[in-house]
């Protein structure tokens, strides 16, 4: 404990030092135990079960097959032969990257706007948060019917009044439609985090930069952006964790289609268990999804830690 206190100075360790008094460990652990047991039973036990299922063949509506052990067969099939899964991995990456990029750029633009004082800023900021808390299924239903519908949607009205050809967005551009729907929801979140970053920046640094002649783009590029880097990474990290799990929007708007064009990894896992009743394959795909998500999260975390250290050095 003492070694780690020295190497990682932070708020947690400072509250520990010098306060280890009477050994009342049982009572203390008692406070922590409910959470640990709860999380173990409801998230870790199901995951161990998932691992167990993933090495078996188990189809719910064919009980006569039993549950034979198949080893890594489910994994092997998913990785080497299952073209739908391979496509789903690619689709997930494309959709996630686009949603994060679009909402981050829009969020940054709006955060920069809101960082300047003007009459009514508080109201504008409050209203801007609203989309983030709208129910995702409601969001998808509204976009699908009112905006993207090929006959009566508002985008169709826009196209026809500009004398352009009709487009069935959800059929012709299913991925981009999902990106539009989810970006609308995630932009306010990015804006909030980035605005917090901007407002935490000391005005003196900017003022000093201005005196040195930095203004406009130069100020943004050399002062604002580097100071904001940590917040931008945080946006990317948190956004990615949640957007990788996008499900309701796809279920409502495109049902993974047309064909499998907008089928993402979570959606495919859902189909495997719900439509094909294939618990074994679904479990294997679920395990792969965890690995996939962990790799991305770990990579992003490492990036975050590295830039944070550089910022301090």
């Amino acid at each position: 404990m003492s070694a780690s206190t020295i190497s990682v100075p932070d708020a947690a360790s400072s509250s520990v030092t010098g306060r280890i008094r009477s050994p009342r460990i049982p009572a203390r652990l008692l406070l922590l135990l409910p959470a640990i047991i709860y999380l173990a039973v409801l998230t870790q036990a199901p995951f161990i079960l998932t691992l167990w299922y993933s090495v078996h063949k188990w189809i719910l509506d064919q009980p006569d097959l039993g549950r034979p052990w198949v080893g890594i067969e489910n994994f092997k099939y998913a990785i080497t032969q299952d073209t739908v899964f391979q496509q789903a991995v690619l689709t997930t990456l494309i959709i996630t990257v686009l949603i994060i990029a679009v909402s981050l750029l829009l969020g940054l633009g709006f955060a920069l706007l809101l960082n300047r004082k003007f009459f009514g800023r508080g109201v504008v900021r409050a209203l801007m948060i609203a989309p983030f808390f709208v129910m995702p299924t409601v969001n998808a239903v509204v976009w699908k019917n009112f905006f993207l519908d090929p006959i009566i949607g508002l985008f169709d009205w826009l196209l026809t009044s500009l004398h352009l050809a009709r487009v069935d967005f959800l059929t012709s551009y299913p991925k981009l439609s999902i990106v539009a729907i989810a970006s609308w929801q995630w932009t306010p979140f990015m804006m909030l985090i980035l605005l917090a970053g901007l407002q935490g920046m000391s005005e003196e640094v900017r003022e000093a930069a201005r005196i040195d002649g930095a203004a406009g783009w130069a100020e943004f590029r050399h002062i604002t952006l580097p100071l904001l880097a940590r917040y931008i990474e945080l946006c990317i990290l948190l956004g990615t964790i949640y957007v990788l799990n996008l499900f309701g929007e796809i279920r409502v708007a495109t049902q993974g289609g047309p064909g499998t064009e907008s089928t993402t990894v979570p959606y495919y896992v859902y189909q495997t268990i719900h439509d094909y009743n294939d618990v074994g394959s679904a479990a294997a795909l679920g395990v792969l999804a965890v690995v996939f998500a962990s790799l991305i999260a770990a990579g992003l975390l490492r990036l975050l830690v590295r830039t944070f250290r550089e910022g301090q050095a």
């Binding site: 780690s4 922590l32 079960l49 896992v269 999804a289 998500a293």
Partner: peptide, 30 residues
């Protein structure tokens, strides 16, 4: 004062990254 506080906190954060979809089948059967 608890041992391995930071480890526990980090584990807690890692839980957040756990995709719900991976547990759906097992939770459903449970």
């Amino acid at each position: 004062p608890l041992p391995a506080k930071r480890t526990i906190l980090v584990l807690v954060i890692v839980m957040v990254t756990f995709p719900g979809i991976a547990l759906v089948a097992a939770l459903f059967i449970f």
